[in-house]
Write a protein that binds this DNA or RNA. Structure first.
Lengths: 336, 336
DNA sequence: CTGTTAGCGCATTCAT
DNA sequence: ATGAATGCGCTAACAG
């Protein structure tokens, strides 16, 4: 089923069919109607792959995420997909599973597919990995270079404000020892460390000013099914256990809650997570969070990418990153 | 950057380069090495799009899901993506957002992309929508026809056993009125209704045998942010409120829990959800669930698709569906 | 063992 | 307003 069949069925040349489909050039109104009718009848859809041979636009963008287990990436994909579809683009999803090699492989695949652009959800590889996008002239967001730093810094700045609000609140409530939980970086991993570093930096500064201890609790890996994190349990049993727990990552939060389940929230410990979800809100008590509108961010980021692909000027403000501290009942005064 | 450049750079013809890349036909070992070196040096990746013009295989499969908000679909996508990547395939993701029109549009896009096959995560459209895949000779799983019914029935049978176990347990614990919560079908929606019907059917049979009342509680839509489901609250205030709540769908569970938050679990009400997650397990008390291994299911389903695409005989047992009832502390004896 | 050539499905230029 | 012809990057059939 090709354009040729439609042409034969309509009794015109393929050039005319092509013009009718794309309404480019001149086509008599009645001929056009007949062509469209034939298309309908034959159930013909022009091959996007053949099209992209001629034009050099594939109408396909890639989305790279590190882990397809974190609900945050569902939000991300939802945002990318909806923005892409609205503009007639289709989304190729690749997950790196936290491994720079897999990520590189995924990028290679995108190059092979000649995607028009790539949205980087998380990026675990080094800048050399990004280089292959540049080499092949593939647009991507967030971009590298000064703009990227601007974006990153916009994101970090937005979040830093929320982090400060959260930290101040904990201090105000009398907490004197705060635990900050992270999952150990995979070897070679980059970006998450970047964000965590920024968060930790802000918290650290705030805590040292206030004379509050900040413990970095690093999980080597996610606890197995049904098991509790030894690292966390151990810290809770130390002489001077933290009275507040901050989780760097939404997908870590349930594990932290599980490990803390011997303690009452918020009477014994207060809990805050980076990243919000309906589950955090439905938990009893509801868990305070540093929220991001990942869906909107992804949409905006994708629009930006499509703009740059299509040579349109990027939206006036680009991507506006917002972040906010949502105080919920999981936060209370420090015990005694 | 094309095969031509590589040929020129190596000082051979494009045919030789092609043969070297695909190691098809004869190529002198040293020539092959030089070609590969040139490729490396120039950073050349053959265009999959041009390849698929000749081969009529795109090495791309589509994945259709209804809603990109349910974590279950993350598992699904993870399974599809991992199985696909292992075989060198790439995944195009389309979400229908519960709308048959969007779904149809997504299928059209897949046709335009000439994907080699489609994995149907959920399928909200009618069979006429599926027809376009058949028309274009696009393989898909679950397949339609007898095989599909076999698959569906295998799935339903597996789950039915778990449902019965759960139902019997509730009855055994003295529950005399059980609520089954569903989200109202979108107009035109099909598959979810199908599964829910099966679940409801099993529960219904079991309850009537045991002389237990089964209330179908239908939510018109998901409660807005921060709001509670009026429908649920209302039922809890009726003269004879249910003592056990069964949620048809994992993504509905947090809303149900939120709406039930005036009651103690499991002292006042018992709660079970279809679909498990770390959050259900981390909740206090941990929420009982009917579990599925969505990741493995998706992987198996995708392998099956790839087998059929490549003319390989499908794996011996095809897809094995497993489902189990996970009793947790959210279930207790009926009050008084 | 290697090079030349045709053609996959389509958009586009150039005639007519 | 329409048709014939060209080429996008690649593989496969054929010729040498």
């Amino acid at each position: 089923m090709t354009i040729k069949d439609v042409a034969a069925h309509t009794g015109v040349s393929i050039a005319t069919v092509s013009r009718a489909i794309n309404d480019s050039g001149y086509v008599a109104a009645d001929v056009k109607a007949r062509v469209l009718a034939s298309m309908q009848e034959l159930g013909f859809r022009p091959s996007q792959r053949a099209r992209s041979m001629r034009n050099s636009r594939t109408m396909t963008i890639g989305a790279i995420v590190s882990e397809l287990v974190n609900p945050v990436y569902l939000e991300f994909l939802r945002g990318v997909e909806s923005a892409a579809n609205e503009s007639g683009y289709v989304v190729l999803v690749v997950s790196s599973q936290g491994s720079p090699e897999k990520e590189h492989e995924g990028l290679q695949r995108m190059v092979a597919e000649r995607v028009d652009g790539v949205v980087l959800g998380t990026f675990v590889g080094g800048s050399n990995s990004l280089a292959i996008l540049a080499e092949h002239n593939i647009a991507h967001v967030p971009p590298t270079g000064p703009v990227s730093e601007a974006l990153n810094s916009a994101w970090v700045v937005a979040e830093a404000a929320a982090t400060r609000e959260m930290g101040r609140r904990l201090v105000e409530l009398g907490h004197r020892r705060i635990a900050y939980v992270v999952l150990q970086d995979m070897p070679g991993r980059r970006t998450p460390g970047f964000y965590h570093k920024a968060r930790y930096g802000v918290l650290h500064e705030l805590c040292s000013e206030a004379g509050v201890a900040l413990d970095l609790v690093t999980l080597v890996r996610l606890p197995a099914d049904g098991a509790r994190s030894d690292e966390i349990v151990e810290v809770t049993r130390s002489d001077e256990p933290p009275s507040a727990w901050v989780t760097c990552n939404h997908s870590l939060l349930p594990y932290v809650l599980d490990a803390l389940s011997g303690l009452r929230i918020p009477e014994d410990v207060s809990v805050v997570g980076y990243g919000d979800s309906i589950w955090a809100a439905a938990y009893r008590p509801p868990i305070a969070a540093i929220g991001h509108d990942t869906y909107s961010e992804a949409r905006a980021l994708t629009s930006m990418l499509l703009d740059s692909i299509n040579g349109r000027p990027p939206a006036p403000d680009g991507v506006e990153y917002k972040s906010w501290f949502i105080e919920r009942e999981s936060i209370g005064p420090a015990p005694r």
